[in-house]
């Protein structure tokens, strides 16, 4: 555990909780892509199956349970409790265009051709692109609530911090996981355009709105 890994995990946790609280407090999931949230629930489910097979640390187990629990709670709030506020017409990204290629790639390129390992690989690849329905939705409506941009910033920051974590681990532990690193770079790059808008607009007190 190093400082980048820890702050990355906490940033991820902050993102998840910001989103849950935003929906809960406003009693609305307007502007939130339910499809991205379903993909994240799928990511955690397929990645954390090792909860049943191996114990790494109390920290590891607790965080996994919190992530999975919050992911399903978010999906429940969007598709059940506050379904009336869900903006399905603007959430029109075709997720099969992500899930099918990612599924194929995880079968082809993995560390070990075993069910658990392929599912772990699937979750890594899927996480790298799971935010696309949300970014697509923002590009379609041309704007995002400020609290939604804080969520996206924390979520993007988490993977960027993991990149520093992997550099640290490579130098100090000789740890090197090519699949996680490449997917993590892709994931972080997808946020770059958003990071730019966040710094130039949201941090200066303006609402995030895209030029028509």
């Amino acid at each position: 555990m190093n400082i980048f890994r820890l702050t990355g995990d906490l940033s991820h946790l902050a993102a998840i909780i910001i989103l849950l609280l935003k929906i809960w407090k406003s009693r609305s999931c307007a502007g939130i892509s339910g499809k991205s949230q379903i993909l994240f629930a799928l990511v955690f489910t397929t990645r954390y199956l090792d909860l049943f097979t191996s114990f790494i640390s109390l920290y590891n187990t607790c965080m996994k349970l919190i992530y999975i629990g919050c992911a399903y709670a978010t999906v429940y709030l969007i598709y059940a409790k506050f379904r009336a506020t869900y903006d399905g017409n603007h959430d029109s990204f075709r997720v099969e265009f992500l899930v099918v290629p990612v599924g194929g790639l995880s079968v082809l390129i993995n560390h070990d051709f075993s069910p658990l390992e392929i599912l772990w690989t699937f979750s890594i690849y899927l996480e790298s692109v799971a935010i696309l329905p949300q970014l697509f939705m923002i590009s379609k409506t041309g704007e995002a609530e400020t609290i939604t941009t804080h969520y996206l910033f924390c979520l993007g920051l988490y993977r960027a911090l993991y990149l520093f974590n992997w550099i640290w681990r490579f130098y100090f532990e000789g740890f090197f996981d090519m699949i996680a690193i490449v997917a993590g770079v892709v994931q972080t790059v997808l946020y770059c355009d958003f990071f730019y808008l966040y710094v130039t607009k949201v941090l200066k007190g303006k609402k995030l709105s895209l030029p028509a």
Partner: peptide
């Protein structure tokens, strides 16, 4: 191959 060694991250 030891998946625990590889997948100790979240």
């Amino acid at each position: 191959f030891d998946p625990v060694m590889w997948h100790d991250e979240l």
